[in-house]
């Protein structure tokens, strides 16, 4: 694993994803609607990991799902590599901008069947045993039923299933929230080694310590609004905005 500062210096800082004035509402019964996200603007640059933190219900997952069109914004524009995402075939967009859910969902069948799912959609050749090793799973598991795996193993399998499609952007929705320290460290290392060339990661986490370990920048979200977009140094500095300090105090005590 490269130290965080090195891979960021290698990157060219071109925006991989840009979003402008994004809002998302869901219709209620009747004519009204509830707004989940309000006017969010920002970028994700090549080579960086951005952590999104905020209380639950602040719209973090919804925001991730807008970026690869699992959800459609009510308002606003998103660009991937400088192109409006509604001009890109949506399946191709999702292959390149991968979303990995908080809970791993495995398809019925073996570990090999699961690895094959995305690869078959895209006619890709891949080495299943090699991919298992990359996510620290034994290649002997290939013939095992997916549901025999532990929670942490399932999450790593789900990651391998997405990573073998070689996406440029990873949208991670709290992938380690159900894992212990060891399982969490495995995933964090895995994501670091994935990050090279024109790639970037947007990582929702509820844990400020994890954000500090993995991220270059941090978005603080609250009630569907992006409150702050700060470098990790500024976020944890003594000069951080009051709201950031309050959030950190409430979460974990002092930093």
């Amino acid at each position: 694993m490269l130290p965080k500062d090195e891979y960021i210096s290698l990157s060219s800082y071109t925006p991989l994803l840009q979003w402008d004035d994004l809002s998302f509402s869901i219709p209620d019964k009747g004519a009204t609607s509830t707004t989940i996200l309000h006017n969010i603007t920002g970028t994700l640059n090549s080579g960086e990991v951005v952590a999104i933190i905020g209380p639950s219900g602040s719209g973090k997952s919804t925001f991730l799902k807008l970026l690869n069109r699992l959800l459609e914004p009510t308002r606003g524009k998103i660009q991937y590599k400088g192109q409006a995402i509604d001009k890109i075939a949506v399946t191709e967009l999702r292959r390149q901008v991968a979303y990995i859910s908080q809970r791993p969902y495995l398809f019925p069948g073996t570990v090999a069947d699961n690895l094959a799912y995305g690869a078959q959609l895209w006619n890709l050749d891949y080495d299943g045993a090699e991919w298992l090793e990359k996510v620290d799973l034994s290649p002997t598991l290939l013939t095992q039923q997916g549901d025999n795996l532990s929670g942490g193993e399932q999450q790593r399998l789900a990651l391998a299933r997405s990573l073998l499609l070689e996406p440029s952007v990873l949208l991670l929705d709290e992938p380690t929230s159900a894992l212990d320290i060891h399982g969490t460290a495995l995933i964090e290392n895995l994501i670091s080694s994935y990050l090279h060339g024109e790639r970037a990661v947007l990582w929702v986490t509820h844990d400020p310590k994890q954000a500090k370990r993995i991220a270059h920048r941090i978005f603080l979200m609250e009630q569907g609004r992006l409150l702050y977009d700060l470098s990790v140094e500024d976020f944890f500095s003594s000069n951080a905005p009051e709201k950031v300090k309050t959030f950190l105090t409430v979460r974990e005590g002092n930093y």
């Binding site: 292959r95 991968a98 979303y99 809970r103 969902y105 019925p108 299933r161």
Partner: peptide, 20 residues
């Protein structure tokens, strides 16, 4: 629902995701 969203996220069409 979870599996179908996963399939869509991997680039499946609605028809492919719903096939099971």
């Amino acid at each position: 629902k979870g599996l179908i969203l996963t399939a869509l996220a991997l680039g499946a069409t609605g028809r492919q995701a719903a096939s099971s």
